[in-house]
């Protein structure tokens, strides 16, 4: 009976603690994320400017926004 109680407590704890967890959207659910207004930078010109600085300072580029509209293909 103790085991049953422990099991129930464990299940309840997991259910409650994962209540706020969000599953990553599936590839076909990224329509909203792919909208231009969903990029982290508010302004495309500012993003390009920052990207340019990043490229020259870090010798690398990219990694911002959702490539190819979140297709997962490039």
């Amino acid at each position: 009976m103790n085991r049953l109680a422990a099991g129930l407590i464990a299940i309840t704890a997991c259910a409650v603690s994962s209540g706020c967890a969000m599953q990553a959207p599936k590839p076909w659910q990224k329509g909203v994320l792919a909208k231009p207004e969903m990029t982290m930078a508010g302004d495309m010109l500012e993003l390009k400017f920052n990207d340019h600085t990043w490229t020259s300072k870090e010798a690398s580029f990219g990694g911002f926004g959702v490539g190819g509209g979140g297709c997962g293909c490039n």
């Binding site: 076909w28 990224k30 329509g31 792919a34 909208k35 190819g68 509209g69 979140g70 297709c71 293909c73 490039n74």
Partner: peptide, 10 residues
């Protein structure tokens, strides 16, 4: 083929 309007390669 699975496609979406927001997907460039599509």
């Amino acid at each position: 083929d699975f496609w979406a309007s927001w997907c460039g390669p599509c």
